[in-house]
Design a protein around this nucleic acid. Sequence first.
DNA 1: AAGGTCTCCAACCGCCTGTAT
DNA 2: TATACAGGCGGTTGGAGACCT
Length: 225
Amino acid sequence: MEQGDNSLRKGPWLEEEDEQLARLVNVFGERKWDSIAIISGLRRSGKSCRMRWLNYLRPNLKRGPISPEEEQIIVQLHDRWGNKWSRIARSLPGRTDNEIKNYWRSHLSKKATQSQEEGNFHCNSNASHNTELDFPYQTENPSNSCNLAYCDIAQNDGMMVGPDQYDLWSLVESPYETRLYDHWMFEISSGEQGEPKFGGGGCHNGWNYSEVGESCMLGSLWDMS
DNA sequence: AAGGTCTCCAACCGCCTGTAT
DNA sequence: TATACAGGCGGTTGGAGACCT
């Protein structure tokens, strides 16, 4: 599908293209995709570069089949949010929205249709109140009411990690991170028990949380510093 | 073994939103 | 405030491999 010298390349990525893109992203970060596309000399669109990075090259991506636990989470969150794949993906570190979308279409949509016809496919009350299913990254320590919001922030910054893998305090080591941390702690402490400050927040099993990630993203905070 | 069909998934497309000027 | 541009998102497509007849 290549034409003249000025035409953009399409189709599968070559190994050399992947390497070149990864180099550029490591230098410039996950932003300015059009610029990265031009500088790289890959003759790919910025969108194509972004897609390739997010869905394939990004570190910490999980490979391999979706586990039954992940499937359960997908089903549950889809039941709650519908086709909000990127939002669902935020709850599954290492999985991409594209991957989840594909998995849903190929594995779960039929199941859902069948079960709905049988009247038993729905987020049942047991599942919807199961903290582990709702919030898979909750740690063993319930005294830390920040886990959920913290996890969401990490994912919004493209760091696909859970609290058990990530050093919470490393967030406060640079100026912008300090602002993020201050903002985050403020939002957390502003939420009242059982009364979420943001739409996605709430109180589960005595835990208080708010989905700070939706209103406080690192990208915008960078610009504040 | 060969041809047809199905499944999966990487990649593209177009629309929408947010941000910069 | 208006406009242009970049990025994000969900829907769709096309190709490769698996499976079936």
